[in-house]
Computed example of a mutant assay.
Amino acid sequence: MHAAATESRSAALRTLLRSLGQIVLQPNAFTGACLLGAWLLDDPRLACAALMGAVAANVSAVLAGYREDDTRAGLHGFNGALAGLAACHFIADNATAAAVAILAATATAWLLEPWSRMLRARGLGFFSSPCLILTWLWLPLAASGTQPASVAATHALSAAQWGSGLLAGFAQTGFASNALPGLLVLVGIAASSPWHALWALIGAGFASVAHLLLGATASSFDAGLLGFNGALTALALADSGVLTMLGGVALSVVLQAAAAHFGWPAMTAPFVLATWSVQWLEQRPAHGAGATQPAHRNDTARAAATKVPVDA
């Protein structure tokens, strides 16, 4: 009896950590633990928000009767974690942020099934889109929008600044900042898949350089705001080839720059829209030939789970 209870608690913990790991498209408990450590280093409030959101979403998925295998892989919890992080990031009051985090995370779980089914029919994955939809709904009511990024001349960056800025971009995948939390996130990705870590570094570096050439400030780079969408896009398109991946990253740069110009709180929307565009373009020849859509493109998070074995 005691052994069964211990095993059940261990399985629940691994599910929770995989939900966090799926934020960077890695269904790996160690990756999730690294993200949790990154939030604790940067701001323990972020860690609490992510855990609240992941728990709320996973409980809702169980109550809704979603597939147990998908829940264990973290597919039903990571948008809840992101919703919690968004609430913590945009709302200063702790009580209000906690309430919004739980409600939004629960809503992402209930939205997930019909929304992902509609996207699968078009050969697209859901990525962080449920979190984006819910956050955009409450954000005008509960928090002030993000300010447009200022444009200023960018001075030459030192090697240390380049390294710190790239790592900070990995921290920004979970609304954190600074190089050390970003290093923890990168270590977590590398532990799950060294190749994915390499592609993410390439994506973050390419996106950062492109943003700087477009006139983004060095302070934005230092905060990690220029690289995180590029890193996520590279992770999502890691199996599509280097040129396709770089094309997706370039599109995410354009979309993020446009959102910053108009002062829109884009968050990870550039990554989602850029990857959807590439997935749609990749499937157009298949539709023209009357071929069926490849199963591994139908569900983004499930595709990530098949690329990297779920840890024991």
Rank of each mutant, 00 (worst) to 15 (best):
A266P: 09
A33K: 09
A197F: 01
N298W: 12
A289C: 12
P27H: 05
A149D: 10
H76M: 13
L137K: 01
R122N: 06
A305G: 11
G65T: 09
G21F: 04
P27F: 03
A286L: 15
T154E: 11
A97F: 01
R284H: 09
L112D: 06
L167D: 05
S19N: 04
P270N: 06
G247A: 11
A105Y: 00
A105G: 06
G182I: 01
R67H: 11
A231M: 07
G247Y: 08
T106Q: 00
N94V: 15
T15E: 12
M245Y: 07
H76L: 11
V187Y: 01
W199T: 15
S219Y: 06
I23K: 00
T244S: 07
L251G: 08
H76Q: 15
S277A: 15
G53M: 03
A295R: 12
T173Y: 03
Q256I: 09
A171K: 09
P294W: 03
T146Q: 14
A101C: 08
T108P: 00
L235S: 03
S116F: 02
R9S: 13
A258D: 09
G74K: 06
A29R: 03
A38W: 01
T275A: 08
L273V: 15
L235W: 03
S192W: 01
I189P: 00
L235K: 04
A73T: 10
L13R: 10
L235Q: 03
A301Y: 12
A168Q: 05
A3Q: 13
T306I: 10
S144R: 13
V249E: 05
A159V: 11
A191F: 12
A4Q: 12
L75F: 08
D93G: 06
S164P: 05
D42Y: 13
I202V: 15
L212N: 11
R9Q: 12
E68A: 15
W138D: 04
A204M: 05
L214S: 15
A57V: 00
L141I: 12
F228E: 04
A83D: 03
Y66D: 08
G174L: 14
P140S: 04
L13C: 10
G77R: 00
F170W: 08
L132K: 00
F221L: 11
A304N: 11
L214W: 14
C88P: 05
R67Q: 11
S277I: 03
A179F: 12
S219W: 03
F30D: 02
F221C: 07
A286T: 09
E282G: 10
V249K: 02
A291I: 02
A149H: 12
H196P: 00
A234M: 05
I102V: 15
